[in-house]
Nucleic acid binder design. Structure first.
Length: 587
DNA sequence: CGTACAGGTCTA
DNA sequence: TATCTAGACCTGTACG
């Protein structure tokens, strides 16, 4: 991909975007494993070196701004980072292969090779210990040089070269960000986390025992339902006990129980909530996922079909708001927490070039913007209507809003409707930058009901239409976020000096939210570049089309404070009052 | 006894 | 009769 220059900026400006400095000719260096050695292929010359010499060799080359081409960043970059080497840019053949293979804008015959199946099947490496090389790695049977040539040929022949090239560049940058976030880790105070748990649950129980607070709630619940041996830990037992108590329930979900007027419901819900907290993010979570004051989930760019990131380990994508107080910046450092309000409706406005919706998006609150322009009466109507349009909701209030939204925002609604119809016909739909949706199963084309589920063919087609409807918006939203991240990564690097973790650096990313760990003195600069990167992402995706992506940015000591920024005068007011001297987690 | 799945709850 | 998207991951339970 060394020849690709997706940014359409004049060369003399030497603007730095997701691809790094575009003002110079890009050189690619392809890294290939050969047993214990590494071959570096560069302009026809081959350098062979021992694996232990690689970090120093890469570091020495880095000032020339090469593009490092490798089979898969998770197999190379953690080792480099561990050796203190950060690279500016790469081509991640695994991720690029995934995009190109599914893109409707690519001639698939150009990607066909002897090891295409191997590239299709290549999985990221997610071991905790970032070894530079694994034994018996299936990646070793793949030829990165041949694959690079195929990908370059496929890209060059694509009618959507610019957009696809941008997507590949952003995807590769994402691979770097993911490895760097795992390397740096999210600062996490086990002592604060433990105190939160003890406040809510009581002291850490020995294995197999209930925490004290749950133990106290239990008789209260049993008495209220008149079921002296009921066990709310077991869904089966709980359902049976509730029915024995005369309640006509068919499941034990919280929102089901909340509808019931019964004195036992309140303590039961409290019990379930606390039990869930202990299971999902309790003491064993701390033991498993927090080491040396850092929470290090594995981030997997494009781990979701829409292009969103997935994660492994520690449930990073569902880090409960309740525990965010435990994420505390290091002494003398701050978190800069930024998120985009209503990313997906804004993306929809941009990709459909719907002028009226873009006008509403000029407001900080897009839904309020819709109200102010007279499209709908209330903010709730706006939100329900938009969500219904993007998710395919037809019932209730969201469905009822659709005709009005269609009249007011014909391009935006038309785009998602078209995506839904295409999906119902079994066609592939594409995001703005050219990520293709997966093909539906073969059953979707026939009229037969699914023998496995008994679901009617018609119902399955509509379900697939809802998926493709959402795919184009969620997927393009992920592309915006990838460009934001990639550009932000470059800007953060230039703010500081030294190692990655000496400078402001990304520590968390969740669809439309980033957390940057920054020296306190640079936090305001970080806030500025976070906004600048968002502007750049909008420009990269939508050019001069006027759609805004306003950010909420907060400079805080704890992640939990992001929603209520600190008064600078009371700088340390939100920190825990005191930190225990002893580690009470010892069992 | 180990694996697979269902149920539930957290995230955007 | 009822279907509004994408995930992670815990437990208990059924099954081979």
């Amino acid at each position: 991909m060394g020849c690709v220059r997706p940014l359409c900026v004049p060369r003399e400006r030497r603007t730095v975007g997701p691809l790094g400095d575009t003002g110079r000719v890009l050189r690619s260096v392809v890294l290939v494993r050969r047993g214990d050695d590494v071959e570096a292929h560069e302009d026809g010359t081959v350098t062979r070196l021992g694996r232990e010499d690689l970090p120093a060799w890469v570091a020495a080359r880095e000032p020339g701004h090469p593009r490092w081409v490798w089979d898969d960043a998770t197999r190379w970059y953690p080792g480099l980072l561990a050796a203190g080497v950060r690279v500016e840019r790469c081509t991640d053949l695994r991720l690029c292969h995934g995009v190109l293979r599914r893109s409707a804008h690519v001639d698939q015959t150009l990607l066909a090779g002897a090891d295409t199946d191997g590239w299709d099947a290549l999985s990221p490496v997610t071991a905790d210990e970032p070894a530079l090389f694994a034994l018996a790695d299936p990646a070793d049977r793949l030829d990165p040089i041949a694959e690079l040539a195929r990908q370059q040929a496929a890209l060059a022949a694509s009618p959507e070269l610019r957009r696809l090239g941008l997507l590949l560049a952003a995807e590769s940058a994402g691979a770097l960000v993911a490895a760097e976030m795992q390397h740096a880790g999210m600062p996490w105070r086990a002592d604060v986390h433990d105190r939160l748990l003890r406040d809510l649950l009581g002291p850490r129980p020995v294995a197999g025992q209930r925490p004290a607070v749950l133990e106290r709630l239990l008789p209260e619940i049993r008495a209220a339902f008149g079921q002296p041996v009921m066990n709310p830990d077991s869904p089966t037992d709980l359902l049976a006990s509730l029915r024995a108590a005369g309640l006509e329930v068919t499941d034990t979900r919280s929102w089901t129980l909340r509808e019931i007027e019964h004195p036992g419901v309140e303590p039961l819900l409290r019990y379930k909530k606390l039990l869930r907290l202990m299971h999902a993010n309790g003491w064993s979570w701390l033991d498993a996922w927090v080491r040396d004051g850092r929470f290090r989930p594995v981030f997997l760019p494009a781990g979701v079909v829409t292009g969103r990131w997935a994660s492994q380990g520690g449930g990073a994508l569902s880090a409960p708001v309740q525990l965010r107080p435990a994420a505390v910046a290091d002494e003398g450092w701050r978190f800069v927490v930024a998120d985009v309000a209503q990313l997906e409706p804004r993306v929809l406005a941009g990709m459909s070039r719907d002028a009226a919706m873009a006008e509403a998006a000029r407001a900080r609150d897009l839904y309020q913007g819709m109200v102010d322009s007279g499209a709908v009466e209330t903010r709730t109507q706006a939100k329900l209507g938009i969500l219904g349009a993007m998710y395919g909701g037809t019932r209730g209030e969201s469905g009822a809003m659709l005709p009005r939204l269609t009249r007011r925002y014909p391009a935006a609604v038309g785009l998602v409707e078209q995506a839904a119809r295409a999906g119902e016909r079994g066609e592939v739909v594409s995001t703005l930058l050219g990520r293709g949706s997966p093909r539906p199963g073969p059953w979707s084309r026939g009229d037969a009901d699914d023998p496995a589920t008994g679901r009617a063919a018609d119902s399955r087609r509509r379900a697939w239409g809802r998926f493709t409807r959402n795919f184009v918006v969620q997927g393009t939203g992920a592309e915006w976020a990838s460009c934001w991240l990639a550009d932000l990564r470059n800007r953060l690097w230039r703010l500081g000096d030294g190692l990655l973790t000496d400078r402001p650096h990304l520590v968390f990313f969740l669809h439309d939210e980033v957390v940057v760990h920054s020296p306190a003195a640079l936090a305001d600069d970080v806030a500025e570049v976070v906004r600048a990167a968002a502007v750049e992402a909008g420009r990269l995706l939508f050019g001069s089309f006027p759609v805004d992506f306003p950010l909420d940015v907060a400079v805080v000591r704890s992640w939990a404070d992001a929603d209520a920024p600190l008064d600078p005068a009371a700088e340390d007011g939100n920190l825990p009052a005191e930190v225990p001297d002893t580690d009470v987690r010892a069992v």
